[in-house]
């Protein structure tokens, strides 16, 4: 496959997409509280990966690259503003079904904690990343991640009226 011809997408890319689209969308939806935005951002991260696939396929962990790009896109305020404008231009209709009460409570609680804590909690509970992996992605010390997780967890427990274990 030449660089200018992506064909139907290489099989390895399709496998990566199938394995990680859902999990990444769940992570970003928990962060945004907006499933459609989460899907758009994850799709764009995969588009960027496919565009650079010749290089990325040689990476030790291509999924980590996609995850990082998706989170970079998600946490970019500029990106979010452009998405809002694009949304207005497309005048799309909201088609997502209403969330269940547990999901609403968790998402609402997540929205009240600081962004750093929220990312760490989501990466821990949904992406199943270790402290070291979160530290790697966020570019901070492992101790910082432990602190974010601990404080984020305590805040969530408090807001959701969960007793500490």
């Amino acid at each position: 496959m030449s660089e200018n011809d992506v064909g139907a997408g290489p099989p390895e890319f399709a496998e990566l997409y199938a394995r990680h689209f859902r999990s990444l969308t769940l992570q970003l939806n928990a962060y945004f509280g907006d499933l459609e935005q989460a899907q758009d951002v994850v799709q764009e991260a995969f588009v960027r990966a496919l565009d650079k696939w010749k290089k990325i396929q040689n990476y030790e962990d291509p999924a980590a690259w996609v995850r990082r790009v998706a989170w970079n896109l998600a946490t970019s305020q500029w990106r979010r503003r452009r998405m809002v404008r694009a949304y207005a231009l497309r005048q799309r209709q909201e088609t997502v079904a209403g969330p269940g009460p547990e999901r609403v409570a968790l998402i609402r609680a997540l929205a009240t904690i600081p962004n750093d804590h929220r990312r760490a909690v989501i990466l821990h509970y949904i992406a199943d990343l270790s402290v070291a992996q979160i530290a790697e992605q966020e570019g901070v010390a492992e101790g910082t991640v432990k602190s974010w997780l601990s404080r984020g967890r305590a805040a969530l427990n408090s807001r959701l009226a969960i007793k500490e274990v």
Partner: peptide
Amino acid sequence: TAPQIRAAGVAAAT
């Protein structure tokens, strides 16, 4: 949430 996710798909990415 998972059942509500609609992946645009590899074809759309392509």
